[in-house]
């Protein structure tokens, strides 16, 4: 993306549709060092999240969704590292923060609902202790009865009975554990919650409950969310806008209705087509071709090797992410 476009987008994000922006990610690059060269897990990714909206971040496994989330949290594990870019949360660049400033931001303004619902709670600590430590780490010691009431309120807000207050994680079901994580995430009224495949380990019924809980929480607290996942059906029901990632790049960002009704990028089109339907059985199209080596991306479009509509220009120049319609961004030469 060019500097001018970046500026324009930044200017837009403050005033766009009169909506405030909670998070702005600019040209984020996260590379993993390997003996044979850097793997570009996230390469020059930019997007923003409006205040009070849920942004869906979708793409196949390994496309860089979780790495993007971890980079926003500044928790990329070695050998990974943030090579460049900015992560502006409420105007503060998280990439430049030192460790203790970062600890203050974490959970206060930026919370995580983790991927592994089953194992994300400390198995030897009671539920109330785990919620209390998040509160007390950031707000200091609290009077005991006030703290207890606050935790019970949080639990009831996510639809959990008060009896789990004293329980250990192994005594809860997967869906309950995930709702404990949601209760924990909203404890400090953060500006942004990153939910990393919050329902992937749950059965469909519980998925709905957890999804509904997320919606309720968003409505009630006016919090912004990034919902990472590859379940397009769940995304359709929960999110306001969808950002599609492929091989470490953002290929399309659009309101959820537009993504489903008129997907522009060939990858998004294949993704929508591949959603299983209960009405008919259709063969999978997406299996053709392979992803290129992320250590050595080819010149031109990153989707060229699997794209059914590939053109000569695609092998030469990389298409930038451009706005085609209001709120509809796509990185594809087809629309030039």
């Amino acid at each position: 993306m060019t500097v001018q476009m970046e500026r324009r987008q930044a200017a837009q994000s403050v005033t766009a549709n009169g909506r405030a922006v909670t998070l702005e990610v600019k040209n984020l690059k996260v590379y993993y060092a390997t003996p044979t060269g850097d793997v570009r897990a996230v390469d020059d990714v930019s997007f923003h999240v409006y205040k009070g909206e849920i942004l869906g971040l979708v793409g196949e496994s390994g496309c860089g969704k979780t790495t993007t989330a971890m980079a926003i949290l500044r928790m990329v594990q070695p050998p990974g590292r943030i090579v460049g870019g900015q992560v502006l949360l409420d105007g503060i660049d998280l990439v430049g923060l030192n460790e203790s400033a970062l600890r203050d931001v974490r959970w206060n303004t930026l919370a995580l609902i983790p991927q592994g619902a089953m194992n994300s709670l400390n198995p030897v600590m009671r539920i109330h202790t785990q919620i209390a430590e998040a509160i007390q780490t950031h707000e200091g010691r609290q009077p005991k009865d006030k703290l207890k009431q606050r935790i019970l309120d949080l639990l009831s807000m996510v639809g959990l009975p008060s009896r789990i207050y004293d329980m250990y994680p192994h005594e809860l079901s997967g869906g309950m554990k995930q709702r404990v994580c949601i209760a924990m995430a909203i404890a400090l009224h953060p500006s942004l919650i990153i939910a990393d495949e919050p329902t992937s380990a749950l059965d469909v019924v519980v998925q709905r409950v957890v999804g509904q809980t997320l919606l309720d929480v968003k409505e009630r607290m006016d919090v912004s969310m990034i919902l990472i996942g590859h379940d397009m059906g769940l995304q359709a029901q929960l999110v306001d806008r969808i950002a599609v990632m492929y091989a470490g790049h953002m290929v399309e960002v659009a309101p959820v209705e537009a993504i489903f009704s008129e997907p522009l990028h060939p990858y998004t089109q294949l993704l929508i087509e591949s959603i299983p339907s209960i009405k008919e059985r259709k063969p999978l199209k997406l299996t053709e071709g392979i992803t290129h080596d992320l250590r050595n991306p080819p010149p031109g479009c990153i989707f060229q090797e699997r794209c059914p509509k590939v053109m000569d220009v695609c092998r030469r120049d990389r298409p930038p992410l451009r706005q085609l319609k209001p709120e509809h961004y796509v990185a594809c030469h087809l629309y030039e």
């Binding site: 949290l73 928790m75 600890r103 995580l112 983790p114 194992n119 400390n122 198995p123 998040a134």
Partner: peptide
């Protein structure tokens, strides 16, 4: 373990994560 990631995301002090 996943709970170590969440502990870090919660902004807990490193000493607390280490011991508890």
């Amino acid at each position: 373990e996943d709970y170590m990631i969440l502990a870090q995301a919660k902004g807990l002090k490193p000493s607390r994560i280490f011991w508890l």
